[in-house]
């Protein structure tokens, strides 16, 4: 059975047996470069479900909207499952609320180009699931190009790095798509929207733009699962994953932690261990 047929038949069974009220998946969006989410509640809906390389968003982004439903099913690739793990660890969701239809992933392609985050992916298969749709996939050899580019960037002087990042960030139009597509960015009022007191200026000047992006990156420390949804969503083509990759690398080096891969291992910044590096205490 081809993957979409399998997904459709399982979705129908789950809905008909009332195991779940809704199945979160994808469907084609004619005229759009990416697929669109579909929240299937009926057999007719379920017949339109699909999952493929044009599913660019991280579907876990929508899960918290269904918090009040008894149980929801979600199609989850590696990234989605890791985001779900983070949401469960942060008490936003209970494991039994979600029925995870796992799917091995060979990467997201937007207009035929593989997303850079996917080219480095180490977790193409869901880390937690209730059942797998089809076989797990073999993790591909990570593309060394991005690692090399990062290493080259690190070798630059502080001023040179600042120049590169500034040129990128100064183009931000503050649409907040990066925040909105992030499954783990769920604050009811984001620091950037706070108005009493106002924490970040609303202008598009470099200082305000930079403050937003740096604080967001720091808020993602130990939580970002490197799905790259923010990077793909950015309409200005800003390399948002540059920040996130760096933050993830630091968390791994300092705390030996990778976010969202183990339900029983709390996020790095929420747990204390006697052997944590204490170098910030001088």
């Amino acid at each position: 059975m081809n993957p979409d047929d399998l997904l459709r038949s399982r979705a129908k069974e789950l809905l008909n047996s009332k195991q779940v009220r809704v199945v979160l998946g994808w469907t084609a969006s004619p005229g759009s470069p990416v697929s669109t989410p579909l929240f299937a509640r009926t057999e007719e809906d379920a017949d339109r479900l699909k999952v493929d390389e044009t599913c660019s968003l991280n579907l876990a982004n929508y899960l918290l909207r269904f918090k009040d439903e008894e149980r929801v099913a979600i199609v989850a690739r590696g990234c989605e499952s890791r985001s779900i793990v983070v949401l469960i660890q942060e008490n936003q969701l209970r494991r039994e609320q979600v029925y995870i239809l796992g799917k091995g992933c060979t990467g997201v392609f937007v207009q035929g180009v593989k997303s850079p985050s996917c080219a480095q992916c180490r977790y193409p298969n869901p880390v937690i699931y209730d059942e797998m749709l089809g076989d797990p996939v073999e993790p591909a050899e990570p593309d060394p190009a991005l690692t090399q580019a990062d290493a080259e960037f690190d070798r630059l002087s502080q001023n040179e790095r600042w120049e590169i990042v500034s040129a990128d960030i100064s183009r931000c139009i503050r649409c907040y798509a990066c925040r909105q597509v992030c499954p783990n960015c769920y604050c009811p009022v984001c620091f950037v929207d706070a108005s009493n007191p106002q924490l970040v200026g609303k202008t598009h000047n470099l200082s305000d733009n930079m403050l937003f992006h740096i604080i967001r990156a720091l808020h993602m420390a130990g939580r970002c699962v490197e799905c790259g949804a923010c990077h793909r969503a950015c309409p200005m083509g800003i390399d948002l994953m540059r920040f996130n990759r760096r933050v993830c690398r630091i968390v791994q080096e300092k705390f030996n932690a990778v976010s969202g891969v183990d339900l029983n291992y709390p996020p790095a910044l929420t747990r204390f261990a006697p052997d944590d590096p204490q170098e910030f205490i001088k």
Partner: peptide
């Protein structure tokens, strides 16, 4: 068509 081409959720204004 910028809104359709750039919508991260694949929402197309014509549709």
């Amino acid at each position: 068509g910028r809104c359709s081409a750039n919508c991260p959720a694949g929402i197309n204004i014509c549709q």
